[in-house]
Simulated scan of single mutants.
Amino acid sequence: MKQPAKSPSLQKAGDNRLRIIGGQWRGRKLAFPDVEGLRPTGDRIRETLFNWLAPEIVGARCLDIFAGSGALGIEALSRGADYCLMVERDRQATSALRNNLALLNCSRAAVRDDDALAFIAKGNSEPAYDVVFIDPPFSLSAWPKVIDSLVQGQWLAANATIYIEAPIDYPLMAPADWSLHRDKRAGKVAYRLYYRNAEA
């Protein structure tokens, strides 16, 4: 994610393509640029995840940290999420995200050009989020900082649902009021869904 910013050409041959799995925009394919460290969640994992999320996603307020290609945030919007804030520091990626949201005529999302860790460390003054996606570049080992900032910064609704992708051998430690709802592995990736059970 350290390449210099440049204007992406979304119709350029050789661009990566992201397919929306389900919901309003099912089957739509969206282009995203080649960006170092950008690793979109694969189709099989996304299908499993959103089957897990089916009871929670409709009407949800979502936060997609390290949004990258927008695979998770856009899928959530397609399946009925009320709003999604996508945070991404790479300008090529955020430009593509905005273009793709415009192609979908989607006004229920916002894209923030910012370093995710710095952004969430500032704390949240808006309504808390019902569903949060945490899928950082694995090289950052950012999970502890992200989790601490989310909890301390008032980002999470009392009964929030939190999705995390990490290497299978990463010793992930969740807060005491998070209960592991589902977990699965795909290759070298472990993906988990937690429910927060905090007092309002």
Rank of each mutant, 00 (worst) to 15 (best):
K2L: 08
P4E: 01
P8Y: 08
N16M: 04
L18V: 02
I20C: 09
I21F: 11
G23C: 03
K29W: 02
L30P: 09
F32P: 08
F32C: 06
P33M: 07
P33Q: 08
I45G: 07
T48F: 05
W52S: 06
W52E: 04
L53M: 06
P55L: 02
I57Y: 01
D64S: 09
F66K: 02
F66D: 00
S69Y: 09
S69Q: 06
I74N: 08
E75G: 11
D82S: 15
M86H: 10
E88V: 07
R91G: 12
R91K: 15
A93L: 07
A93W: 11
A93R: 10
A93G: 09
A96D: 03
N99T: 13
A102V: 04
L103C: 10
L103Y: 09
L104R: 03
C106R: 13
S107Y: 08
A109C: 10
A109M: 03
A116N: 07
S125E: 06
P127V: 03
A128V: 08
D130Q: 10
D130Y: 03
P136V: 04
P136Q: 05
P137I: 00
S139R: 15
S141M: 12
A142D: 06
I147S: 01
D148P: 10
Q152W: 04
G153E: 00
A157C: 11
A157Y: 02
T161H: 12
Y163T: 08
I164A: 06
A166F: 13
I168D: 14
D177F: 02
D183G: 12
D183S: 15
K184M: 03
K184L: 00
Y191F: 14
Y191V: 01
Y194F: 15
E199F: 10
A200E: 13
